[in-house]
Amino acid sequence: MPPITEADEHQLDQELSGLDALELAPAPRAEWASRIWAATWPKLLAVAIALLLWQLVVWSGWKKPWQLPPPGPVFRALWDGLQNGTIWRGIGLTLRRAVYGYSLALVIGVAVGLLVARSRVLRSGVGSMITGLMTMPSIAWFPLAIVLLGGNESAIMFVVVLGAAPAIANGLIAGIDNVPPILVRAGRVLGARGTNLWRHVILPAAMPTFATGLKQGWAFAWRSLLAGELIVIVRGTPSLGAQLSNARDLREMELLIAIMIVILVIGILADSLVFGRIERYVRKRFGLVDAAGS
């Protein structure tokens, strides 16, 4: 070997970084504000079109105004409800239940998912049961839940957990199943065995699919929760579901639609601000999204 001097090394580095610079094209960066605008305006347009259609249907005289009120009074009812705090109280109550139920589902889903993924015996039996549970409409659980737990919050939580936990467990199991074998081999070659292999290779590699499971679990939880709040009205808890049911009983159609809008908006915000963001973050870290796109 000829002694490699520092000058040589330096030259090598320069040559190589020259080559590397060729290999890495600079990523195009759009202007921040214009990017937000580009992402927002199609959504604003869609909302505007929906409102216009709604107004047109009202104008067409298809239904009486007390059955289907136009957007104006509905937004006034929404504004009033927000002003006097009833809608905020409903949002607070329902969101608290959502967070509580989802957290419980997360713990149970992860625990079951890990157990099933690690044990071959459980896999064949419980694995298919979990997929089966996911196809079960959550509303079908309520009669049983009410008999078992009474017409109270526990029954609602029971159904929320049953709705969300299988999706979360399933995401974890699918993620673990689909870890590229080459990465597991790479981990083993590096000396990762047992717990270390799980911690450093299998679980991180399962994250993209798990993130999708988290998002799906949220969708299940949110639907089950609202169904539960409509069916199981707990006295003295004016949740969004209870307010919705109440508005129907009192024929306050403006308020009814206003609350529906609130429910829709919360669902969209949770999906895009929390779960969509988690999913995007994980996928981006893994290089699963085109850095230039969306």
Binding site: R185, A186, P204, R285
Partner: peptide, 9 residues
Amino acid sequence: FQEAALFPW
């Protein structure tokens, strides 16, 4: 390995 087999995360 023949492929780089790096951990993408």
